[in-house]
Design a protein around this nucleic acid. Structure first.
Length: 425
RNA sequence: GGAGAGGUGGCCGAGCGGUUGAAGGCGCACGCUUGGAAAGCGUGUGUAGGUUUACCCCUACCGAGGGUUCGAAUCCCUCCCUCUCCGCCA
């Protein structure tokens, strides 16, 4: 959420920032007009309340002295009518203003590239090299089914399209990947592990920005006001909702493994084959709470922490900076990590690392107390995948496939698979 | 799901319906004291909004939302959460 005061004082900056984004947002001039009206009403009401308070105190004194106070009592009763009226008006405006603010996306970082979609994203760097595979590479579905690692047909029977059953060594590989990633992030990159609930309430989704605008992406419970998490970002960022943190404790870094549930409502026909786009997938998430001045630097570190997984697994990837048009609603700046997939002869997103500035923190009321005193200020929040396990599974199958249809287990992963070197049928 | 108890400031803990934003204690910060430390003493120490160059000032907040009253942390109603016991259950 943007600060209404900031909008008031910097209307031109806000307008230019939002114009760079795709989509429609509430009219800012209307918004400011309503805000002006709200403050006027508020001031008027507060003046009357002050008057009322004084009169009531007078009544108390007079009554204690056994004196008549009906004149004052009548006056307060009179004031109450006006106060109620004003408060109702102010409250109504507050609700409208708040709703509008929730519908306004974050201002994009000034330095990120213009553009309307992913074709305008900016190449930052790449690492490693494409594997030299002999013959036509098989895709992960062919490999996975041949080796008995995944069963998509039965998953469709059990749950429907866009679900998967991992079996045998496939299940072990997925589980191994998750453990491997959490271990690296906790033991080498300094993150504390959290294991949060997979069902969250509405407030949490408002805090991170999935609601109110993107409810159609969520799986909702029928009998309870709860939603399946679309990403661990939601429970982990909301871990500190409504809290004032100590400045010295920042940055706070958490990692969490969770499954993620997404309806993929807007993506009919896209990636219908295989494990690339699923309603349920596993992900190890990285979340940071940082001092405002440090968030830029922390984003760079977070991207490197995510990259470290790909490096250890020796998978070729590139880092892209998202252009404004590809940027998420709450994000100010985002880097995507894209891993090489031989069968598709292309790079696919396997991690998305964002700096949200104080946008989520203001929504979720996450502040920090400054050592120098003064008012608490909103922290900056960041998060990124470190990494998406399902897509990593795909990348390993495809990049490590052998001519005979087997798959070599990356060395770093072998301790997680009882030392196994090759997956074969 | 049933029965009971409870939710007050960073924490503990008072609080007859009328200078209570809230006693007291702990913690924390600063100062005094000391060779140094501890103890001791003193001062300060919530959040949000409005106004303001700033200080000040004003308003709201004692789980949340309503209600009663001239006046509510205190009385009434609804909801939420926590704890204990029972039931159910991995």
């Amino acid at each position: 959420m943007l600060d209404i005061k900031f909008i008031r004082d910097n209307i031109q900056i806000v307008k230019t920032g939002l114009e760079r984004r795709n989509g429609k947002f509430p009219d800012l001039d209307d918004l400011l007009e309503q805000e002006e009206e709200r403050r006027e009403g508020l001031q008027e009401s507060e003046q009357l309340k002050n008057k009322k308070k004084k009169l009531s105190a007078e009544v108390g004194k007079l009554k204690q002295q056994g004196q008549e106070a009906s004149e004052q009592m009548g006056e307060v009763k009179n004031l109450n009518v006006f106060i109620k009226e004003l408060d109702e008006k102010v409250e109504g405006l507050e609700t409208i203003i708040h709703e509008k603010l929730l519908g306004i996306p974050n201002l994009p970082d000034e330095n990120i590239p213009d553009g309307i979609d992913e074709s305008n994203n900016k190449f930052i760097r790449e690492w490693g090299a494409k594997p030299s595979l002999k013959g036509e590479p098989l895709n992960h579905v062919e490999l996975g089914e041949k080796l008995g690692l995944i069963d998509l047909k039965r998953a469709a029977k059990i749950s429907g399209a866009r679900f998967a059953v991992y079996r045998g060594m496939g299940a072990a590989l997925l589980r191994g990947l998750i453990n491997f990633m959490v271990d690296v992030q906790t033991q080498e990159n300094g993150y504390e592990e959290l294991y949060p609930p997979f069902l969250v309430n509405e407030e949490s989704l408002l805090g991170t920005g999935q609601l109110p605008k993107f409810g159609e992406e969520l799986f909702a419970m029928k009998n309870d006001p709860l939603f399946l998490i679309p990403t661990a970002e939601v429970p982990v960022t909301n871990f500190h909702r409504d809290e004032i943190l100590e400045e010295e404790s920042l940055p706070i870094c958490y990692t969490a493994y969770t499954p993620c549930f997404r309806r993929e409502a807007g993506s009919y026909g896209k990636d219908t084959q295989g494990l690339i786009r699923q309603h349920q997938f596993d992900k190890v998430e990285l979340v940071k709470f940082s001092k405002p001045d440090d968030s830029e630097k922390e984003l760079e570190k977070l991207v490197q922490n995510a990259e470290s997984i790909l490096k250890k697994l020796d998978l070729h990837y590139r880092v892209m900076e998202l252009c404004v048009g590809d940027l998420g609603f709450s994000a100010a700046k985002t880097y995507d990590l894209e891993v090489w997939l031989p069968s598709q002869n292309t790079y696919r997103e396997i991690s998305s690392c964002s700096n949200f500035g104080d946008y989520q923190a203001r929504r979720a009321k996450i502040r920090c107390k400054k050592k120098t005193g003064g008012k608490p200020e909103f922290v900056h929040t960041l998060n990124g995948s470190g990494l998406a396990a399902g897509r990593l599974f795909v990348a390993i199958l495809e990049n490590y496939q052998n001519e005979d249809g087997t798959v070599t287990v990356p060395e770093a992963l072998r301790p997680y698979l009882q030392g196994r070197k090759v997956l074969s049928s």
